[in-house]
Nucleic acid binder design. Structure first.
Lengths: 138, 138
DNA sequence: TCATAGATTAGAATTATTCTAAACTAGTTG
DNA sequence: CAACTAGTTTAGAATAATTCTAATCTATGA
């Protein structure tokens, strides 16, 4: 979320979510919550961490992404059967997905509109409506 | 596709797609294209085949699903990071996805409407707009 | 009937992800 | 501040879906 960039704040937010502000979690949060929206995969975040000199195992990157998701700091985006993306923008919005590049681009929620969604089948409630606009080179 | 259920027709369609009408492809098509829309995974189709007494390897099920997709007989639906779904309905429509059960339910294309999709980023063209309505028990 | 290009297959290989059990650390308590 | 402990991290093994390989089969045209 937007204002997580101030380091002292990170610890507070982690604690509020019941997560100890360990070095790994704090540093990963530092990479992720820089103020602008980001899309990462476990692999991409692990590489970025390595480049940034952060010592963290891939297992911890996976754990952390899932914990951040459970805490509401991240949202998982399912667009590619091959890998999982996590989005630092947890607000109402949708995505372009550039298949050939594996690239996600946000579409603001106010911009796109879905109507005519039928009632959920009996016993079920709508959790979320995901729109993926798949784009490619013509 | 709707009218593939008549067996003689299957061979013709396979040939038209440049695919030899082998026993495996013909029998799998027989399971898939029964006239009503179906959603399968490689695993589910392999099991169903076994139950139906069709002798086919899992590798061939995977191959066949991809070939049928390339031929336009099937469409891949990305809703679950864990496995790939294939839909016999290749027309304009969208889906409910019941997360806990891994169940897909069609939403007719006329029923649902997406507006306000911004222009594709420079050099890219919209390939398809996918809507997934995620539902769960409340 | 034959030859052969295309298909199928078992099993190995690959890839993303999760699990495990041992080693570590943040936060608390005495 | 030393000791304790519950929660974390980690390397590496394990899993699961999918793809690859190379050997064996088969549809089909001559």
């Amino acid at each position: 979320m937007a204002q997580m960039e101030r380091r002292p704040d990170i610890a507070v937010r982690l604690k509020a979510a019941g997560l100890r502000p360990t070095r790994q979690r704090t540093q990963l949060a530092g990479l992720l919550f820089t103020g602008h929206d980001r899309h990462v995969t476990a692999e991409s975040l692990a590489e970025e961490s390595a480049r940034a000199g952060i010592k963290v195992s891939l297992a911890t990157v996976y754990n952390t992404l899932h914990q951040f998701e459970a805490a509401g700091f991240l949202r998982q985006v399912v667009v590619d059967a091959a890998r999982s993306y996590f989005d630092t923008n947890t607000g109402d919005h949708q995505h372009f997905f550039v298949e050939d590049e594996g690239l996600l681009i946000d579409i603001p929620g106010e911009q796109i509109r879905v109507s005519g969604v039928p009632e959920a089948p009996a016993g079920l409630a709508v959790d979320r409506v995901d729109v993926v606009v798949r784009v490619k080179r013509p």
